[in-house]
């Protein structure tokens, strides 16, 4: 890998970007994800997690939680909002009106 190699192809995060994160004191995958944005694109870490682990090991980053993968987020498989909306109509009552945190008016 060169410094211009992409670790995360969804979000264009390079080895150089990850090195800058390590330099700034971020030494776990969770932190590097947040500092660089790696793993937040459509693949959700499926492609970039292993190359980042390899890089961290090469850089001698230690610590029991450093190489732990970041939290896996649902949904596990692609599903459209249309399908989810139809599921809601079949499986539950029509959504109850509630007020919004964004709409909280106090």
């Amino acid at each position: 890998m060169t410094t211009r190699t992409f670790i995360c192809r969804c979000e264009d995060v390079t080895v150089k970007d990850c090195d800058a994160a390590i330099e700034a004191g971020f030494e776990t995958i969770e932190e590097i994800k947040r500092f660089t944005g790696m793993g937040t694109g459509p693949c959700q870490g499926r492609e970039c997690m292993v190359p980042l682990c390899t890089l961290l090991q090469e850089r001698g980053v230690e610590g029991s939680d450093a190489l732990a993968p970041f939290t896996a987020r649902p949904p596990a498989a692609q599903i459209s909002l249309g399908a989810l909306a139809d599921g809601a109509r079949e499986s539950t009552a029509i959504p109850t009106p509630t007020s919004s945190p964004e709409g909280e008016d106090s």
Binding site: P74, P75, L81, G82, L84, A85, G87, A88, R89, S91, T92, I94, P95
Partner: peptide, 10 residues
């Protein structure tokens, strides 16, 4: 997820 999807798509 379902409630959000139903409201958003409406």
């Amino acid at each position: 997820l379902e409630r959000m999807a139903a409201n958003l798509t409406a």
